[in-house]
């Protein structure tokens, strides 16, 4: 019996699992390390020495690189939140991302409706025009938008990020919505039209309520783009009050060049919420990335 079981467990399968587990370790370890050093003191991270009061001999304490903290230094988190202002940056990122999502969603649903369910000459061309946005790098907008924002005194406001983020999420929004809207039966439009609904009535009463699944997909995709964006954020919002999380983290390093604990805490504060959401919505989040790429 035992021998038969052993033979069933193929060597190749074991090797594949072993290789995959090594990859799991490589994926997890940097995050584990970040969490542990966010809870350590500088002494523990760098190692230190002290003079034993009884014998008078200098005792070397080596750095604790990979172990759990000997003493959990929660004050690092308090410092990152208070002095490092991570709470404010977190809120800013949330305001900017959620507003950008709302605008992207409304604009791309409306445009998709006109592009897929209303019949007119040139709608294919218009769709291709919007799809150019998938390839246009954000660098294209930096100088002109910076100059326009600065002339309108809109630098260092939420607006300075919300509209550019929405604009750069639009093409993907339209691409994803096109897939979802195509799944809604066209008979519904016709029936509603015969019942006396106009184009707006059809859009608001029939199409919009059926686009709920698209809201999650477009929303997740847009959210991650905005939440993690750095280039626009550093350039358009350099002032402290409206900084987003990535900019805040970047600035924090200027303040604490040699203090590892608060730096680790700031990195963790910026990372943990995303990971918690991912644990609960992993399938949904993965699907939104797939929807964005597969149809492209």
């Amino acid at each position: 019996m035992r021998e038969r079981k052993k033979r069933k467990l193929k060597v190749s399968t074991v090797l594949v699992h072993l290789a995959l587990l090594v990859l799991v370790f490589i994926n997890i370890f940097p995050l584990y390390w970040m969490l542990t050093f966010s809870l350590k003191t500088n002494d523990e991270i760098l190692g230190y020495s002290y003079k034993d009061p009884e014998t008078g001999v200098r005792v070397q304490v080596p750095p604790n690189h990979v172990g759990l903290p000997h003493q959990w230094e929660w004050s690092n988190y308090a410092e990152a939140m208070n002095t490092g202002n991570m709470g404010q940056y977190f809120l800013n990122s949330l305001v900017v991302s959620v507003s950008a999502i709302a605008i992207t969603m409304v604009a791309s649903f409306m445009a998709t409706y006109a592009l897929t369910r209303l019949v007119w000459k040139g709608r294919k061309m218009m769709n291709k025009f919007f799809m150019l946005g998938l390839t246009i790098p954000i660098h294209a907008s930096i100088v002109p938008v910076y100059i326009i924002l600065s002339r309108m005194s809109l630098l260092n406001t939420y607006m300075a990020l919300i509209f550019p983020y929405a604009a750069f999420s639009l093409s993907m929004g339209i691409l994803i919505s096109t897939g979802f809207m195509g799944d809604i039966p066209y008979d519904l439009d016709e029936a509603a039209f015969l019942d006396g609904c106009g184009v707006w009535g059809i859009f608001l009463r029939i199409i919009a309520p059926l686009m709920m699944p698209a809201i999650a997909t477009v929303g997740i995709y847009t959210f991650l783009q905005c939440w993690n964006e750095l280039l626009f954020a550093t350039i358009f919002v350099s002032s402290g009050q409206y900084r987003t999380l990535p900019v805040g983290v970047q600035q924090l390093f200027g303040q604490y060049t040699t203090r590892w604990g608060p730096i680790g805490a700031a990195l963790s504060i910026a990372t943990i919420p995303t990971l918690i959401v991912y644990i609960f919505l992993s399938k949904r989040i993965q699907d939104s990335f797939i929807a964005g790429a597969v149809k492209g």
Partner: peptide, 12 residues
């Protein structure tokens, strides 16, 4: 219907 998307896309 196209207007909001066009403003954002063309403008930015």
């Amino acid at each position: 219907f196209l207007l909001p998307a066009l403003i954002l896309f063309v403008g930015i």
